[in-house]
Write a protein that binds this DNA or RNA. Structure first.
Lengths: 150, 150
DNA sequence: TCCAAATAGGACTAAAATCATCCTTAATGT
DNA sequence: ACATTAAGGATGATTTTAGTCCTATTTGGA
């Protein structure tokens, strides 16, 4: 459907939440689940993917939880999404050379390449640190608006 | 999966094929199906969508078939895809204001807006007439390459 | 060393989407 | 009337999506 799945959306929420927390402080899955409105048992699977992808570190037991494995500045939206959804290919002809045997002569193929390049540009251009900053700016703006409304 | 479905791909092939034919000359579904490698009965459904969307005209009976309903210059890739897949929304939060109640404060939302804008730009920037021209250029180029290889 | 707290991982499932096929109906030109 | 051609409805297999649940494993502390 050319649409992000819940997996991708939830992964972004989780990583973004971790990025907003003090670095190194383990965050419980329950806390992520409740604050980000993601079913806990489902989120558990997503976190596993993020750990295997090297974006997140986990520790079990008391004082356990999840932390970012790398600074939020170095983690992009695209990376987070691909960690749980696999590589983004807007059309199957972009999966690999030869996946679609019409590649050679199909005039639409280059258009998909360009479309994907543009999309990647946007998603790779935003780090989790950027998004945390953006979120804080939005919060500030909302407070200002509320004050004006009084 | 953030990927075009077969519906969209097949629709593009069909409309592109019609665009490459003499305007007004009815083309049989069998001809489209075989030349574009799309299952005939499946293609039949897709053509119905394209007719209802106003991109293609159909006529039944002898001398029947499909033709473009409008000049190929005025039909874009995006329009063709949306005719069979519905409007493109890269994330459900883009479907409409309020679809995702996190809209207001979600710092990711504007990124998706931008991503979708860029994608639309590419897909809307190519008309079927453009693609036919591109296809002819590719053919010419391939002939040249073959000559050189001899 | 045992226990409580956490995540890891496997099995399972309901619902929806995807990718079709087949058959009957309706329109159209000769 | 008849042959031709698309329209439309019903059906179905397979895959993906979006979860849940249960058990195992790790970990730190009493």
């Amino acid at each position: 459907m050319l649409q992000l799945t819940r997996n991708g959306e939830y992964a972004v929420r989780a990583v973004l939440y971790l990025s907003s927390q003090p670095p190194g402080k383990p965050v419980l899955i329950t806390e992520i689940s409740e604050s980000q409105e993601v079913p806990k048992s489902y989120l558990s699977k997503i976190m596993q993917h993020l750990v295997r992808a090297g974006l997140v570190r986990s520790r079990r037991g008391i004082n356990g939880g999840f932390t970012l494995a790398r600074p939020a500045e170095t983690i992009t939206l695209k990376e987070t999404i691909e960690a749980v959804e696999g590589p983004i290919h807007l059309n199957i002809c972009l999966i690999r050379k030869g996946e679609c045997h019409r590649d050679d002569f199909c005039p639409v193929h280059p258009v998909w390449q360009e479309a994907q390049r543009r999309l990647s540009e946007v998603l790779d251009g935003k780090s989790m640190a950027d998004l945390v900053r953006d979120g804080e700016a939005i919060k500030k703006q909302m407070k200002k608006t509320r004050r004006k409304q009084k």
